[in-house]
Structure formats: C-alpha cells, structure tokens
C-alpha cells in the first residue's frame, strides 16, 4: 500500500500518541515494586511493548494493584 505525503501526516500523530502511552506505561512499571503489579514485571514489559495500544491500556486498567 502506497502512502502519500498526506497519508504519512495522518498516520504520524496516531503513532506518536501510541508511543507516548507505551512510554508512560513503562515508566510507571519501572517505578513499581514487585508486589504492586499483578503478575511478574517482566511479563508486563512484554505485554506493553508487543501489545501496542491494547497492551498499555490493559496495564493501566488491570495491571496495577494499588492506586489504580
């Protein structure tokens, strides 16, 4: 599929927002102790990075134990 100039401009903000969400999720994860996440921290790193938007959303909604 060929993307034109406008196509790239349209897609870029979407990619940037997804990247921001991923970074915030990883920052939050790195600041938490082992007991403050549901399941191992390493598993969440994989879910957040490989799961794109869905991975970060799942982490924010059900991944954190306290204060969520």
């Amino acid at each position: 599929m060929q993307l034109g100039d406008l196509g790239l401009q349209v897609i870029l903000p979407v990619a940037i927002i997804e990247l921001i969400l991923m970074v915030i999720a990883l920052v939050d994860l790195s600041r938490r102790e082992k007991e403050e996440t549901r399941g191992p921290k390493l598993l969440w790193v994989f879910i957040i990075i490989l799961g794109n938007l869905l991975g970060s959303v799942v982490y924010f909604t059900v991944g954190r134990r306290s204060g969520s």
């Binding site: 969400l21 915030i24 939050d28 938007l53 959303v57 924010f60 954190r64 204060g67 969520s68």
Partner: peptide, 15 residues
C-alpha cells in the same frame, strides 16, 4: 495525576 489517569485516559479517548 500521580497514577497517570490524567494522561492515559484522555490519550486513549483521543485515539
């Protein structure tokens, strides 16, 4: 703000 709700919920809705 501390648990990033103010960042991630608006961003997800924007997406």
């Amino acid at each position: 703000t501390r648990n990033y709700k103010w960042i991630w919920i608006p961003l997800v809705f924007l997406l």
